[in-house]
Design a protein around this nucleic acid. Structure first.
Length: 357
DNA sequence: AAGCCGGGGGG
DNA sequence: CCCCCAGGCTT
């Protein structure tokens, strides 16, 4: 009698060889730089969303040395719209580390790989297995889901105990000599068959021994405990125009959108308008006594982030003298496309044809 | 251990 | 409206 574990591994590999038709540009890739790039881009990101970014990065930076030598702003600009911008910062740091310490040759040992910025246990295992066929099992959202259902494991995957339990199990299941193929198989299987919603249990090659299916636990697995609280925030953006220039700054606070740019921001506790901003004294610290003219006020914009709902309004004003606004710099409006902005700002810019993108 | 970091797609 | 996505870092 074949064990559930052996059944699992064999059926998964068989499914991959005979049925799996999922196609990605980096699939079967052996170049560690390309694998790494794809893995960074795909962290918490759908394949369909990351795909065009991957193509663009490979076009611009065919080698890790090229990426390491690129100006920060150019790289952030290329990353614009993808989200989780710390990934971009860490990616640049890692590229420069690889260039400086390893002479541009990607490290081929797990510990060295994992020590690079932005590379955690998942990404290290992915690179180690795909590029170097080292025996490290990947543990991502797909693997958590497939394992929790097939083995009927109800330990929360967002707990320390869960991560340890699933990590150990995943490593035990890994066929040592087939790590690349197996890792690819289980992730594709999770994405194509054992999906979060409406999984294809009717045609699943594991159904005979799937605990969740037999115990009708499929919709309840995997278990997650933490629920997130969503805050509302209100951003009033002043587009302060002086001749052909406009004020912007780079966001550096420990907050969202680090390393991206923005216009003059006045954050308020609730919805506001230019009159309220003036009478509350919020304008004074920014413009001082500089007279200004209100050109127009945008419709409200809304953007949903993981932990926050951002309500934005853009107020366009003109000054005849250029005040010194602390933290902000005056740049030509025509140069805005050299800077990376958060989605809500690019959406605004595009909607107003203020900028060609 | 818990919280935070984007944006998009689907139910 | 909710959840999830080839997760990792900070506190």
């Amino acid at each position: 009698m074949i064990s559930p574990r052996q059944f699992f591994t064999e059926k998964l590999l068989e499914w991959n060889r005979e049925t799996n038709t999922r196609n990605m540009p980096w699939k079967g890739e052996k170049n560690p730089y390309r694998i790494w790039l794809s893995e960074i881009i795909l962290q918490q990101t759908r394949v369909e969303q990351g795909w065009p970014y991957y193509e663009r990065f490979i076009q611009h930076y065919p080698t890790v040395k090229k990426l390491a030598a690129a100006p920060d702003e150019e790289v952030f600009r290329l990353w614009q719209g993808l989200g989780y911008y710390a990934r971009c910062k860490n990616m640049l740091a890692a590229a420069r580390e690889i260039t400086a310490t390893y002479q541009g040759k990607f490290p081929d040992q797990y510990e060295q790989i994992k020590a690079l910025k932005g590379i955690g246990s998942y990404t290290a295992a992915a690179i180690a297995s795909f590029a170097f066929n080292l025996p490290y099992a990947v543990l991502d959202g797909n693997v958590f889901r497939v394992l929790s259902r097939y083995f009927g494991i109800e330990t929360p995957i967002d707990s320390t105990a869960g991560k340890k339990q699933f990590g150990t199990l995943a490593q035990e299941l890994l066929p040592q000599s087939l790590s690349a193929e197996y890792n690819q198989s289980i992730m594709d299987f999770g994405a194509v068959v054992c999906k979060p919603q409406q999984p294809l249990c009717g045609e699943c090659v594991l159904r005979k021994k799937c605990v969740a299916l037999h115990e009708q636990l499929v919709p309840h697995l995997p278990v997650k405990t933490k629920k997130l609280l969503i805050k509302k925030r209100y951003f009033n953006y002043l587009l302060v125009h002086y001749k052909e220039d406009i004020y912007i700054r780079k966001r550096t606070d420990s907050d969202i959108w680090q390393n991206l740019h923005e216009f003059v921001l006045i954050e308020t506790a609730g919805p506001s308008d230019i009159t309220a901003l003036q009478s509350s004294g919020a304008i004074d610290p920014i413009l001082g006594k500089t007279p200004f003219e209100i050109d127009r006020v945008s419709a409200p914009f809304k953007q949903q982030l993981t932990h926050q709902t951002i309500h934005s309004q853009f107020i366009s004003i003109t000054v005849k003298k250029a005040p010194a606004i602390p933290g902000y710099t005056l740049v030509p409006r025509s140069s805005l496309n050299n800077y990376a902005f958060p989605k809500t700002i690019t959406t605004f810019l595009e909607s107003n044809h203020l900028q060609l993108f």
